[in-house]
């Protein structure tokens, strides 16, 4: 190989530049940051924590297809029972069911922001906490 020294220096500079965001985060301590989604104080979720962690987006996708395309509305959980909120059957609805307990900014956004994903659910589906704020204003 010609110019071995120059090539190796070049490679090192390239690797340093390329990994600089990671290195900078490590040095500033931001690399150890963990998102801290806030769970509601009480109540049970429609499915187990591990299931929701892995599959919540697929579940929501199934919900939307069931509701919009097949006209199924009410949610039955994996134990075969209708899921209920305050004694009423819960709908398969992000706004009406999920956000009934969870707070978007303190729960959903925490991980989404950390991973820099922007689910387009929120382009249309309304975060009810925003409306409460508007009413208060």
């Amino acid at each position: 190989m010609y110019d071995t020294g120059k090539v190796i220096i070049g490679i090192i500079i390239f690797v340093l530049l390329f990994t600089s965001p990671l290195l900078l985060n490590l040095s500033s301590g931001e690399g150890t940051y963990r998102p801290d989604p806030k769970l509601p104080a009480s109540g049970t979720c429609v499915e187990s924590k591990s299931y929701m962690k892995d599959y919540h987006m697929e579940m929501l996708n199934t919900w939307r297809n069931m509701v919009v395309r097949q006209n199924y509305r009410y949610l039955k959980t994996s134990d075969g029972k209708y899921f209920e909120i305050n004694g009423h059957r819960a709908e398969m609805s992000l706004t009406k069911t999920c956000l009934n307990c969870h707070h978007k900014a303190e729960f959903c956004d925490k991980c989404h922001n950390y991973l820099d994903v922007q689910p387009y659910c929120w382009n249309c589906h309304i975060d009810p906490s925003l409306i409460k704020k508007e009413v208060e204003r």
Binding site: V46, E47, Y51, Y55, E58, M59, N61, T62, W63, M66, N71, Y72, R73, Y74, L75, K76, T77, S78, G80, Y82, M92
Partner: peptide, 15 residues
């Protein structure tokens, strides 16, 4: 198959 898995989790019925 994955969709089926999700479906099996949330058994859904007509209103």
């Amino acid at each position: 198959r994955r969709t089926l898995k999700v479906l099996a989790k949330n058994v859904i019925s007509k209103p």
